[in-house]
Simulated assay, not measured.
Amino acid sequence: MQLTIHQIDAFTNELFKGNYAAVIPLDTWLSDDLMLKIGAENNVSETAFTCQQSDGSFAIRWFSPLMEIDFCGHATLAAAYVLCEQHNLAQVRFYAAAVGELVVNKNSDGSFAMTFPKQAPVVVLNAPSALLNGLSKAPTKVLKNRQAYFAIYDNEQDVTQLKTDSQLLKTLFPLDVVASAPGDEYDFVSRYFWPASGGDEDYVTGSIHTGLAPYWAQQLGKTTLSAYQASSRGGQLLCDVGDTYVTITGHAVRYLTGTIFI
Rank of each mutant, 00 (worst) to 15 (best):
P25E: 03
L26S: 09
L26P: 09
D27E: 15
T28G: 05
W29P: 07
L30F: 06
S31W: 05
S31L: 10
S31C: 10
D32V: 06
D32C: 10
D32M: 08
D33W: 02
D33G: 14
M35G: 12
M35C: 10
L36M: 14
L36Q: 15
L36T: 07
L36A: 15
K37C: 10
I38A: 12
A40Y: 03
A40N: 13
A40G: 10
N42P: 11
N43Y: 08
N43G: 09
N43D: 14
N43W: 02
N43F: 13
N43R: 12
V44W: 02
S45N: 04
S45D: 00
S45K: 01
E46M: 07
E46S: 12
T47K: 01
T47C: 04
A48R: 02
A48G: 07
A48T: 02
A48V: 01
A48K: 03
F49Y: 08
F49M: 04
T50W: 13
T50P: 14
C51H: 05
C51W: 03
Q53F: 06
D55V: 06
G56T: 05
A59F: 02
I60V: 15
W62R: 04
W62T: 02
W62G: 07
P65C: 08
P65G: 09
L66G: 12
I69L: 15
D70R: 09
C72F: 03
C72T: 01
H74T: 06
A75E: 04
L77F: 13
L77D: 06
L77K: 10
A78H: 00
A79T: 06
A79C: 10
Y81K: 09
Y81T: 06
V82G: 07
L83Y: 08
L83C: 13
L83R: 09
Q86T: 14
Q86W: 10
H87Y: 15
L89Q: 13
A90C: 12
A90T: 13
Q91A: 14
V92C: 08
V92P: 06
R93E: 14
R93M: 13
R93G: 11
